[in-house]
Design a protein around this nucleic acid. Structure first.
Lengths: 167, 167
DNA sequence: AGTGCCATGTAAGGAGTTACATGATTCG
DNA sequence: CGAATCATGTAACTCCTTACATGGCACT
């Protein structure tokens, strides 16, 4: 995933690692903090695979920059990813859901988890509301997506509470 | 995650690996196919950590079973997980979202991705509807959660389409 | 003197996926 | 004879996370 996001960012314009980390986190509004080391490792790997190539740009006073850009293969690979059929959506590996369903019927415990989660969801939604203001279109849209999901999960927590009481 | 789910299953009753794999997949309605090898590896690891202990039960005609049960430490660990504060919900690493936002403004491409995704979501929802019939309460609830999320994502795709046209 | 920014990296490890190995029994 | 079920495991690999290393400059 990281690899393809970096490819997508390089598809917009050539960039060096340090800059890519910032662009990456700005695009995702900091919801995916990435370690700078990983950016360099991915770039090195992609270079080895011929997806990107770099030019060293010397600077005085500051360290050299290694400016990367997509190769032909790189943009093919990016395009391939973008056009690939969606991976299976029938897949749910979230703590929230799992913690609740394994406790279903265990009244006290399930309800406590549900309440804790509900509160966490509300906090997260509020936090995203604050984040939403300081972003551009694409990032704002991403945040909207997150909020919609969290709202769906809140409705699910209501369902779960009913289901637990019904047992 | 796998580790804790196995602990939760063992919290219900002692079981051996082969059986745990089946219970795991039944609980998750097959949305998380797990490799049997991983079950054995996790069990071995948990045994080394003193979370579970096993008794070998000989069978005639069939291979021996290693029946595991939670230790005191194991149920403490399970409880700790269940009661732990939810991990951050402000985090979104799904292909769907990322593929769309990196293409936003790139009209043709973004719209194609959106349509592909919409279709995949509808297919997935239909599939889950079929699955829903053959399950018990907890698993059914899980599926409801998945469906709610997919519906939220569908609404998001509408938002994304509007946002793309607006650029 | 210490913190933070610029810019590059290496290394260790956890979690999950996929494939393969072994051996007996039962069903078609 | 071949495939599926029961039952155990090992090995290799990808992806992501976390921590650490280096070195100069600027600001307080």
């Amino acid at each position: 995933m990281i690899r393809y996001l970096l490819l997508a960012l390089l598809g917009r314009s050539a960039a060096y690692g340090y800059e890519l980390k910032a662009a990456f986190e700005r695009l995702l509004a900091g919801t995916w903090p990435i370690n700078i080391g990983q950016v360099y490792r991915e770039l090195a790997r992609m270079e080895a695979n011929g997806l990107v190539e770099c030019t060293v740009v010397a600077q005085d006073l500051l360290p050299d920059r290694k400016v990367y850009e997509l190769t032909e293969r790189g943009s093919k690979e990016l395009e391939r990813w973008l056009e690939a059929p969606p991976t299976s959506l029938v897949r749910l590996r979230d703590e929230v859901f799992l913690k609740v369903i394994v406790q279903l019927g265990n009244h006290g415990a399930a309800l406590e988890t549900i309440w804790r989660q509900r509160e966490a969801h509300l906090t997260a939604i509020a936090e995203l509301g604050r984040l939403r203001n300081e972003t551009d279109a694409a990032t704002g849209l991403l945040i909207d997506g997150l909020v919609l999901r969290l709202e769906a999960d809140l409705r699910w927590l209501d369902l779960a509470e009913d289901a637990d009481r019904a047992t």
